[in-house]
Amino acid sequence: MSDGELRTDGGATTDVRWNLEGVTIEDAALYIVLLLAAAFYLVPIESGLVTSFKTGTAIVETAPFAPPGASGLTFEKWGSAIDALLRGMGNSLLYAVPATVISAFVGSITAYGLTIPTWKKSYKAVVLMLIIAGIFIPYQAVLVPLTQFWSQWVQLGEALSFVWALGIPNDYAGIIELVITHVAYGIPICTLLFRTYYKTMSEEMIESARLDGATLRRVYRRIVLPLSGPMFAVVLIYQFTQIWNDLLFTLVIVSTESSPAAPVVLILAGLGTSLEGQDFALRMAGAFFAALPTLAVYILFGEEFAEGVAA
């Protein structure tokens, strides 16, 4: 069918003209590169997904990215993965959600204090430098003091003995420790992201509110906070993803997957591993199931995330 031709289907006329004018070789090459890049990133995901539906025989006999076929298709691994990880999913939500919300809110207030109020720049620079320094401290550098802090100095399990008397396992002290740890480690990056966003706000709007007698607290509550929705989406998605996927702090604080408070990443690390070898289908099913909460967060805050990144 040539350019400009009309097609008639059942009496209805459909315009199927393709306007190829203005499409250069550079544009076509760019589209091809983008398609290849998308395929490069999507093929491993597709391979893992189809592997999760394969039997052991199909995994051996088929290519990683090839579908299992009717004889090699099974949903058993997904059922086993859900049964194994469901408890861990609940435990992970117990610390990931509050740690994300608290670190985002505290980061917003801190960034507001370092951006909007007028105080000596030398003092502000020192405080900002100390906060930003926290971003560059690697997790591995704080493992020993972190362990000593929770096991020797604070001993949260003993301090909350009245809670465990209600029948709650004292292993859940690790959940509280993970919340506090991730909040402390997340405040610097949250502060930096919010401060970058707040520096783009209209100074005239803030100054007008101050001239009308609004206090710093009222300015934040009535003006700054309502306008912070897009950046809150960015921070919430970033923080939740980082906290949900973190294994290092979980290993240090909770230690064992047999604990009643074991998060999903800790259980996932040993899923499908036995003396007989690796159950790749089970591990892939568990990995995709464990990733569902982060995917849901991206879907819920996707539009606000794009707006916040573009701001």
Rank of each mutant, 00 (worst) to 15 (best):
G10P: 10
G11R: 07
A12K: 10
D15M: 11
L20H: 06
L20D: 10
E21P: 04
G22R: 13
G22F: 15
T24W: 11
I25P: 05
E26Q: 05
A28H: 04
L30A: 07
Y31S: 07
V33C: 12
L34S: 06
L34I: 13
L36Y: 03
A38Q: 07
F40P: 09
L42E: 13
P44L: 12
T51V: 11
T51P: 08
G56N: 12
A58I: 09
I59T: 12
P64D: 12
A70H: 06
A70Q: 06
S71K: 11
S71Q: 13
G72Q: 08
L73M: 14
F75I: 14
E76F: 06
K77P: 04
W78V: 03
I82R: 08
L93E: 06
A96F: 05
V97W: 10
A99N: 07
V101M: 05
I102P: 01
I102V: 15
I102E: 08
A104C: 14
F105Y: 12
F105W: 12
V106W: 05
A111E: 12
A111F: 10
I116V: 15
P117S: 04
W119I: 09
W119M: 10
S122F: 13
Y123H: 13
Y123M: 14
K124H: 07
L128P: 09
L130D: 09
L130T: 08
L130W: 09
L130Q: 09
I135K: 03
I135A: 05
I137G: 07
Q140P: 04
L143H: 03
L143P: 04
P145Q: 03
L146T: 02
Q152K: 08
Q152D: 12
L156K: 00
G157I: 04
L160K: 06
S161L: 13
F162V: 13
W164L: 03
G167A: 08
D171A: 04
I175Q: 01
L178N: 00
L178K: 00
H182W: 06
A184S: 14
P188N: 08
C190M: 11
L192E: 10
L193M: 14
F194M: 10
T196N: 15
T200Q: 10
S202F: 11
S208F: 10
A209P: 01
R210D: 13
R210C: 11
T215Y: 02
V219T: 08
Y220S: 00
R222H: 02
I223E: 09
V224P: 00
L225A: 11
P226G: 00
P226I: 02
G229E: 08
P230Y: 13
A233L: 05
V235K: 02
L236I: 15
L236V: 15
I237T: 06
Y238G: 05
F240I: 04
F240Q: 08
F240P: 11
F240R: 04
N245G: 12
L247V: 00
L248V: 02
L248I: 00
F249Q: 01
V252F: 00
V252E: 01
S255C: 03
E257D: 11
P260E: 01
A261N: 00
A262V: 03
P263G: 12
V265L: 02
L271S: 02
L275H: 06
Q278N: 12
D279G: 02
A291L: 14
L292Y: 07
T294I: 14
T294F: 09
L295P: 07
A296F: 15
A296C: 14
V297K: 05
G302M: 07
E303S: 12
V309M: 06
V309D: 02
